[in-house]
């Protein structure tokens, strides 16, 4: 599971969706790996406005990466700064969470991540 994916995920429990605490989910015991993915600058620039930057900062810190700036880079920042582009690419698309758990900050439910795949199936009492 990629860090970019985590930016779109919230708790699967319906009653949690209204709560701000259910997003982002919090990685726990995360085992990370880096996959080589070809960089696509245009895609990154276009994906940027779709990202919840505050949540990404939280996720990045929780995964043990250096703190991201408070404000997201602009499209101009990204296109003119190759290093920044590469770092963002690595964080969002190349960093994989292979094992661990994703924890909902509202209900506390833990979703398992195994072999890079997060499982959001709920036990019947939570559906």
């Amino acid at each position: 599971m990629k860090v970019l994916t985590l930016n779109f995920l919230t708790c699967a429990v319906k009653t949690c969706k209204a709560s701000n605490d259910s997003f982002p989910l919090h990685p726990k015991d995360a085992e990370l790996a880096k996959d080589g993915v070809e960089i696509n600058p245009q895609l990154l620039v276009n994906v940027l406005p779709r990202i919840d930057w505050t949540a990404l900062r939280t996720t990045s810190t929780e995964l043990g990466f250096p703190a991201l700036p408070e404000q997201p880079p602009t499209a101009e920042d990204l296109t003119s700064d190759e290093k920044m582009l590469q770092e963002l690419h690595t964080l969002l698309l190349e960093t994989q969470m292979l094992e661990g758990k994703l924890v909902c900050g509202h209900c506390g439910h833990e979703y398992a991540v195994r072999e890079g795949i997060a499982n959001f199936l709920l036990p019947s009492h939570l559906v």
């Binding site: 970019l4 994916t5 995920l9 795949i117 997060a118 499982n119 959001f120 709920l122």
Partner: peptide, 8 residues
């Protein structure tokens, strides 16, 4: 670049 997960 795409990603997958298990969900209902």
């Amino acid at each position: 670049i795409s990603d997958v997960l298990v969900a209902d």
